[in-house]
């Protein structure tokens, strides 16, 4: 394998890994702090991707403006979802089924509005490439890496250093005592679910920028993002970022040296090795 091919593979792995981390961040937080294994997250990602396609692609609004509108809108959707989950006493296991159902509903809604055909959003502003030596870096991918790394690092720092982050961790350790010291547990959990859904909106904008969309693809990221979330450690944004990159780069190199069809084997091999060799991690 030539150095250029290798370099290009590593780069595309980093791009893919950034998207895994960006999609996984909301899942990881809601799994850890809400005890909700949120499959509906992928429904939200695609809903945001289609809305980006619709408003920025078909109707010609600026993609940035669409993103800035989607974020608060999805925040509210996330809050509503969590209110319902609390209202109906959904536990960790049943959340898997309930949110899977929500993802299927999202798929049906998307198919109803946008049909089952492939659609593609072309963004001219982010169309170019940056050339570094013999390597090509697409603008949209560079932006993705910056946003994904930025959000993961910012979330890590917020969990570690802010009142909000400390209150959330305290609530996880001991909700009753946290409440006795004034921590409003329920409200913080709604904030987490809103934030998690807002992250789905951001991820969705990038899915629209980078991929051809079809409703049937909603759950196609599920396995690899699950692997990144578990490998990174629940509620651990930096671990997630590293895991996403590791999986993305391993996949890309596997594809370059073998065949593309081998790529999906990589995240699960890593995940199974993790489960076998380091079970207490999960």
């Amino acid at each position: 394998m030539s150095a250029t091919l290798f370099g290009q593979s590593v780069l595309s792995g980093i791009f893919a890994g950034s998207l895994y981390a960006l999609m996984g961040l909301g899942m990881s937080l809601s799994w850890r702090y809400l005890r909700v294994i949120n499959i509906a997250h992928f429904g939200l990602v695609f809903l945001a991707a289609y809305m980006t396609y619709e408003f920025a692609g078909v109707r010609g609004f600026s993609a940035l403006a669409v993103a800035l509108l989607l974020i608060p809108l999805f925040f509210m959707l996330g809050v509503i979802q969590q209110v319902l989950i609390l209202r109906f006493n959904v536990n960790e296991f049943s959340s898997l089924i309930v949110t899977y159902g929500l993802a299927i509903i999202a798929e049906a809604v998307i198919q109803l509005i946008w049909s089952a055909d492939f659609v593609r959003y072309e963004n001219r502003a982010l169309h170019g490439n940056v050339e570094v030596g013999t390597l090509l870096l697409p603008m949209a991918d560079i932006l993705l890496v910056v946003i994904a790394v930025g959000l993961c690092v910012a979330t890590w720092a917020a969990m570690r250093f802010t009142w909000l982050g400390k209150a959330l961790r305290a609530g996880l350790d001991n909700p009753a005592i946290a409440a006795a010291f004034g921590v409003p547990n329920q409200r913080l959990l709604l904030l987490v679910s809103g934030f998690s859904a807002a992250l789905a909106a951001v991820a969705g904008v990038f899915v629209a920028l980078l991929y051809t969309l079809a409703p049937s693809q909603i759950l196609s990221w599920l396995g690899v993002v699950f692997a990144a979330v578990l490998l990174g450690g629940l509620g651990n944004p930096l671990g997630l970022l590293a895991a996403g990159m590791l999986i993305g780069v391993s996949e890309a190199i596997t594809m370059a040296v073998t065949a593309p069809s081998w790529a999906p084997v990589v995240p699960f091999t890593i995940l199974i090795l993790l489960l076998v060799l380091w079970p207490q991690r999960v």
Binding site: W163, R169, D173, N174, A178
Partner: peptide, 13 residues
């Protein structure tokens, strides 16, 4: 205590 948190974080809470 908030057992997974540091001594100082417990006090801050």
């Amino acid at each position: 205590l908030f057992t997974s948190m540091t001594v100082e974080e417990n006090l801050e809470l």
